[in-house]
Design a protein around this nucleic acid. Structure first.
Lengths: 191, 191
DNA sequence: CGATTCTTTGAAAACAGTCAATCTGTGTGG
DNA sequence: CCACACAGATTGACTGTTTTCAAAGAATCG
């Protein structure tokens, strides 16, 4: 893979080469095998994780053990349990690789240092969190106002790249319907 | 009302009196009557709004005209359509007062200026947005994993202050169920 | 009061969930 | 190359919940 992260930074902000070097110099590169966890419930989330290649999911378990998927993340996405990462409290979530995945990781302390030393990085993250909040509120709106079928269509429009890459039963766990229901509403009108 | 906003700032961060003055000096104070809108779909959202007293809701309309409530806000809460406010694009949401409400308002340009001049204000807002994102993701989790009844109980636990202050049919519109369903699940509470 | 606004109720229809079985494709080991 | 196991997807019959539609009871307010 080419240097996804450098390309990402250049695309999302205006960083000097020196700044990119600083940011990258603090990163840990890591390869995560399919089905390998980088976070389990009960553990503290230690890293901000950038995905340079591959795919992961973040989920929690329901009372009877069902997976409820909070988010998928692929190339150019960040993933972490922010609540645990910022507070230092144990997480209630799991993060696992759905494919062999290459990531870059920073501790929160390193991030705080980067925010101070590289104002543009601080600005970038403000934009990211802000956009994530908007996206999350859009999802809440979808959850409370769409039918199962509309949620599925909205999902396809928003994450076309995940179709085929993520099994359908996980999309069901993301939408909040059973896999059987997803199968049936797909059958009602093929895409 | 005493100066809710000064108390709020002192409670949420460590501001000098001079800083509080700067922040307050840029604010517009405004009284909003019950049922009066401060934002309608199609308009651009111009202000970050702090509620010193009263109650508002932010909602969007579904295809057949039903209200879907994205959030309630009371004293010490901020409310705005961030998407529109930051982008300058027309909003797709409505913000309306549920009671006579006193607010303070700042444009985004004023906020940007405050972020630069008062670093502690910048830090406060980072924390707020971050917490809002966590809360929104918790709500998504609730939406996809709880039954209607569990959602209602979770709502009561999370916003005990809104019971009695907000009509039940709005709570239904927040939870994503019909008012009839909410009535019925409330009725079948034995304990 | 009279007029909204809000809440509740009933009955039927639409919808999603459950349980159990089957079908499909994939990959592994013999 | 085949047999088998496995994960994923589908189907059917059934149950349970939620919506819809229609109506009628409370509560609130000018």
């Amino acid at each position: 893979m080419p240097d996804t992260f450098r390309r990402y930074l250049r695309e999302k902000g205006s960083f000097t080469d020196a700044q990119v070097d600083v940011i990258e110099s603090l990163a840990r590169a890591r390869m995560v095998k399919r089905k390998q966890f980088i976070l389990r419930a009960g553990e503290v989330c230690h890293y901000h994780t950038f995905i340079s290649n591959g795919c992961m999911k973040l989920y929690r378990l329901g009372e009877t053990g069902e997976e409820h998927i909070i988010k998928f993340a692929i190339e150019d996405w960040w993933i972490s349990d922010r609540q645990s990462l910022l507070s230092g409290e144990p997480s209630d979530s799991y993060i696992v690789a759905l494919e062999d995945t290459d990531v870059l990781q920073w501790t929160n302390a390193e991030f705080e240092r980067l925010f101070k030393e590289v104002p543009e990085f601080d600005a970038l993250f403000k934009r990211l969190i802000s956009k994530a909040l908007d996206a999350s509120q859009d999802r809440v709106f979808g959850n409370i106002s769409y039918t199962a079928e509309e949620k599925y269509r909205a999902f396809l429009e928003k994450y076309p790249g995940l179709m085929g890459r993520v099994p359908l039963h996980m999309i069901a766990a993301y939408l909040g319907v059973t896999r059987e229901t997803l199968t049936r509403l797909r059958g009602r009108r093929p895409a």
